[in-house]
Write a protein that binds this DNA or RNA. Structure first.
Length: 290
DNA sequence: AACGCGTGGTC
DNA sequence: TGACCAAGCGT
């Protein structure tokens, strides 16, 4: 008797267990997929959903986003976090509009050359947006591969061989291989999670190298969790929050009120100016870019 | 290659 | 309750 390959088990599990997410609906185009993928970089699904709907209703094509004042784009990004992503997404839209006839490229290398689009996002767009057979490796997938294939408790740092590891798990059939790429991510997001994995409901528990090894604890160094309170990130967030809420340019004292330490405050405001998230007006006030 | 970059939910 | 976590990217 033959055993189903892990990739097939994961695809079949996905058919029954996948979340019903709007960017996975039939007819969602590559632009909508691209917007979702950039928003989902480090931001949870629940917070992305409403903003993604608003963006696609407002900017249904790359050209429409490219034509918008950047301040409006930053404002519409809202509190998704890491607002430089909004800047880069608009810059990518501008390249798509100017150099690709407004059509999101379907080639991984071309996608990867766009601002804010790296290895993960390029492959996600090619696979989810264009139905290509592509290994798509994010943190969830690296964790699944670490356990299922390598018998380790936690993901290793990203490395070039990740793509081959995932490709080796994919079913031979084209359509199933395409679905496998999203399915293995979903498995990592719902079952093979970072905290306590739900091995009892895992479709590949019987062939998982980590389980078969007795679920050994992670041996390497614990990865350090980044601080937030008191960091420049927090200060930048507060400064930008004031500017997003304002209808026009704001005076310096209004920004000074968000943080006591003038040195750190000044450094953060300057970095926002350097990033292009904030501009200074002729009369020395501050605003989102026009 | 390690680090900086936002925000809010969870246990 | 604060540590941990969430579909990365650029430098």
């Amino acid at each position: 008797m033959t055993h189903a390959a892990p990739g097939d088990l994961i695809v079949d599990w996905y058919a029954a267990a996948a979340r019903d997410l709007p960017w996975r609906a039939p007819g969602v185009d590559a632009w909508a997929v691209l917007v979702s993928e950039v928003m989902l970089q480090q931001t949870p699904v629940a917070r992305v959903e409403p903003v993604w709907r608003q963006w696609l209703a407002r900017w249904p094509t790359p050209a429409t986003l490219a034509a918008e004042p950047t301040g409006e784009v930053i404002r519409a990004w809202g509190k998704l976090g890491y607002p430089r992503r909004a800047l880069r997404l608009q810059a990518a839209a501008a390249v798509i509009a100017a150099e690709h006839d407004g059509v999101v490229p379907d080639d991984v290398d071309t996608l990867e050359s766009l601002p804010g689009i790296g290895s993960y996002t390029a492959r996600a767009v090619a696979c989810f947006g264009y139905g290509q057979r592509q290994p798509v490796v994010d943190t969830n997938v690296r964790r699944v591969v670490a356990r299922l294939v390598h018998g380790r408790a936690e993901a290793l740092p990203a490395r070039a061989s990740d793509l081959g590891d995932v490709a080796a798990l994919a079913p031979a059939d084209h359509d199933r291989a395409v679905r496998f790429s999203v399915a293995v991510m979903e498995l990592g997001a719902l079952v093979c999670v970072a905290g306590t994995p739900r091995c009892g409901v895992c479709p590949v528990r019987g062939v998982c190298a980590w389980r078969l090894a007795g679920s050994p604890a992670h041996d390497g160094p614990a990865r350090k969790v980044q601080k937030f309170a008191g960091t420049d990130r927090q200060v930048r967030g507060r400064l930008l929050d004031v500017l997003r809420a304002a209808t026009g340019p704001v005076e310096q004292p209004e920004l000074d009120a968000v943080w006591d330490d003038p040195v750190q405050r000044g450094r953060c405001l300057d970095s926002l100016l350097v990033d292009g998230l904030v501009v200074q007006t002729d009369d020395a006030r501050f605003a989102l870019p026009g």
